[in-house]
Design a protein around this nucleic acid. Sequence first.
DNA 1: GCAGACAATGACAACGTTATCATTGATCCT
DNA 2: AGGATCAATGATAACGTTGTCATTGTCTGC
Lengths: 341, 341
Amino acid sequence: MPRHRSRTAPSIVEVAAASGVSMKTVSRVLNEEGSVREDTARKVREAAAALGYTLNLSAQRLARGRSHNIGILLVARSNWQRTAELVSGALGKSQAIGYGLVPHVLAKYEGAERDGVLALKARKAVDGLILTVPWSENLKLLADLAERAVPHVRISGPLIPGHVTAHSNDEMGAYALTRHLLDLGHRRIGVIGGQRHLNVTRERLAGYEHALREAAIDPRSLPHFFDDYLFGTGFRGAKELLALSAPPSALLCLTDILAAGAIRRCHEMNVTVPGKVSIAGMGDSSIAEMIWPTLTTATVPTAELAARAVGMLVDVIEGKTAPTDLILDVPLVVRGSTARV
Amino acid sequence: MPRHRSRTAPSIVEVAAASGVSMKTVSRVLNEEGSVREDTARKVREAAAALGYTLNLSAQRLARGRSHNIGILLVARSNWQRTAELVSGALGKSQAIGYGLVPHVLAKYEGAERDGVLALKARKAVDGLILTVPWSENLKLLADLAERAVPHVRISGPLIPGHVTAHSNDEMGAYALTRHLLDLGHRRIGVIGGQRHLNVTRERLAGYEHALREAAIDPRSLPHFFDDYLFGTGFRGAKELLALSAPPSALLCLTDILAAGAIRRCHEMNVTVPGKVSIAGMGDSSIAEMIWPTLTTATVPTAELAARAVGMLVDVIEGKTAPTDLILDVPLVVRGSTARV
DNA sequence: GCAGACAATGACAACGTTATCATTGATCCT
DNA sequence: AGGATCAATGATAACGTTGTCATTGTCTGC
């Protein structure tokens, strides 16, 4: 006895029957594969429209062996602003090219969480992965992905052969920022940053030190404060560095959020910015224009990086091009938080 | 001639063969359906582990007729902070209960974009939808979803029978904020807000007006500025309202971002906050503690709302419970941007 | 010792696509 | 005229699960 098909979504066979062609031809038309006569195609499209039919993604995925989804690995308890930029950049691009974006937040890469990440590809939930800091430089993860041939593109992180990376020239950005402070006459330029072992930290620090050495200043003679990349670090760092017997006249914060924290502390301590101390950030997140004084910083094109990473990943997945690393500029933006000494 | 299976992921039949049971039993074990003897189950689990096997999601989705994904509809070019909170709240919950989260940004609900949203369910990309402002109050969309029996939960938006909503008591929040300003001796309390037609706007305004009327003040006698919910509106609103011949002594901004914009403008105009004018926001987003002075506001539990909405949606999808609306509190948080007149 | 109940398992057909290869006609060349 | 070529189409078998229903054993109670 045939099962009663009440209110079930129509399938490709119904459309085929209604338009008098085979399933395969319907499939060809709806996927725009070509090599179908225009009048046949029209008939099919009309039948599909009449039935309110759309291809079933699950069936398509199973048959094709691909999910048409890409995953983006994010870190828990981080700067939301940056996370939002990453996701929104990736989402815009993936939506435009017909891929779904599956965000996945991860607190650590161990045990069940590790299994969860690797299952993403094994279970065909995604065709590939976008890795953001700090996952883009987690060697255990990178090794696992390489071993399992999981396509992936990293956003930032050290250049490693065999791992495609979408990069911004953070070293240049930090160099430009430091030069800017030097040009304003600052000599004692302190630095506040997050985890030292991260590649972003090292790159930005390299730019900072490069500029100092050019000006014949020994970076080791300057005060610094490192912890993590959250607001509180900027806040505490400013207090500590400005309380020094020989306080810096300028502070380079390796992130806008850090700079925002430092500036807020200055307000609390009645230290005028940039009158008494100049403060620069890095990243050019939207907060840079929301605080007072507005922040001198360098634009890290986070959203664009994410969008480009998606494009690169899809190229890898579809085997279109040989993967190449990408490096975007990080231009200086001078605003109100820095001034002549 | 059998196809050579080189490096292909193992399927359930391999596991069945390796453990000497049928496919169905493997399926039962891996899905923890029960009614399998413990020693059989162990054999199966060992075989699966040895082969590095995991169930294929696409096949599972096709067979089950459900995607185990939920979509979240976001609006383009909005406050990123709020978007990030929504996504992160929803993501945490959905990840915990084994659902994937598929964010979808939408600029308008027409033409191809409308088709895209509706296709999400028709193509079985998602089992249901979370609607955020302003989509949660788009009547055309709501009608389409009802017509197609697409399970959905709205975050904010007017209470409409038949549409489940996760709500925060914004009216109470705005009332508390206004009372706070009144208690500080303010009488001329201006208001800055976004789109007036939005339900959030109306609710918050209702709380504001309620408090004023209690204090025998006619809300219509007070200055206001409405545009959208972006930083620039707060910025422009503050300038306009403070330039009035009878400027307000306090400003209630219907959103933290708006308040941040207003405060920045005050800094530019050398109007001290809260000395000359008190400013309150609403939402308690992370920016409230990053600016100076820190912002008096009311906590809208955005992330929790999103998480709860996911839970409610899954209940609806799985037919577990009768859907009920949810209303969370919006408690007042007094910080540095408001003071006695 | 046997019907009945019940727990554990299996066979096989969905689920709705796409891939592969075969089959049509029509068109082209010599 | 007679292949050869080519564009358009179709038949059928995957893809890898789960649902349904049937089939085993294994106990019970009498």
